[in-house]
Amino acid sequence: MKKAILYINQFFGQIGGEDKADFAPVIREGKVGPAMEFAKNLQADITYTIICGDNFMGSNTDEAVKTILDGLEGKDFDLFLAGPAFQAGRYGVACGTICKAVKEKFNVPVLTSMNVENPGVEMFKSNMLIMEGANIASHMRKDVAAMVKVANKILSGEQVGPATEEGYFPTGRRKEVWLEDKTTAADRMINMLVAKLNGEPFVTELPIPKPDRVPIAPAIKDLKHAKIALVTTGGIVPVDNPDKIQSASATRWGRYDISHTMRLESGVYKTIHAGFDPAAANDDPNVITPVDALQELLKEGYYGSLHPYFYSTVGTGTTQAEAARMANEIVPYLKEDNVDGIIMVST
């Protein structure tokens, strides 16, 4: 039989209420509290129950996580469960924190449950499956049953279905699904159209997510002494594409020395971007990476200095995660050279 380990707080661990919230983590052999409820239908044996005070996890997070991870070392388990945490904020965050740490360290699937109002949902939903739970503990049985249903799929290696069908919070991942009833896109379009025209309810297949913003970096104070770097997603590379950057869905980037290059010559540089007509950029790569203009403006003293390399990759089809990774791989080079600002040319 497969094995699972459950994390719960001091209250459900029968240590005590708010007065025991500073309780340091312990790993108990066997089933404590909600573990009994899980055990009814879970297709795994709950071998250990971890109990930790919510305040201890909240204010001594590193120590709590370390104690638990160290305690789990050498223990054999196929699934890590936490909660359900209902609307209890500190408990929810604790479940998220420990699930994330266990998943990263032991590469074992994790599962928890929280109410939509629990701050742990926003913090951790992109990292793990969080079942959408009730607000108060009187719904324990229902929330545990929902967790067990998904847990058993994970244990048996069965695909866990879409968020709305399984009852967890969307992780931000969207994947294609074959419709069992085989309703064609044309028929779905008609249904949605007629409903929308008649003011009846309909469900879009692509809900528009809320935009994600970063704080604005402060402006360069003195352009005359600023060091500028040039980055492009337009796929400009030396003609032999030495870094083998892919022409779509890129996972690679390259940097090319322009410290003595007054302009990018045709035949020396080209674009490998597959998303547009490459003729113009191949004929004059400076139309995407304005090395010629930057060198001239440097000569004129318009700005201080030019970072000796330009950086290039391809934007089309490239995942945001890959793009973020590539950017973060480039950042150290820019920091090392004390770059003050970046010009990014996108196609």
């Binding site: 969207r174 294609e176 379009m189 692509l206 089809g317 995942t319 945001q320 995660a321």
Partner: peptide
Amino acid sequence: TGRDGMSQPLVTLDEKCDALVSCGDVSD
């Protein structure tokens, strides 16, 4: 949405697009 399924589904988005039929993922 990318091989990890985590990327923005269309390169531009607008909340006025409230009735979209989606036919698949090129990056699957």
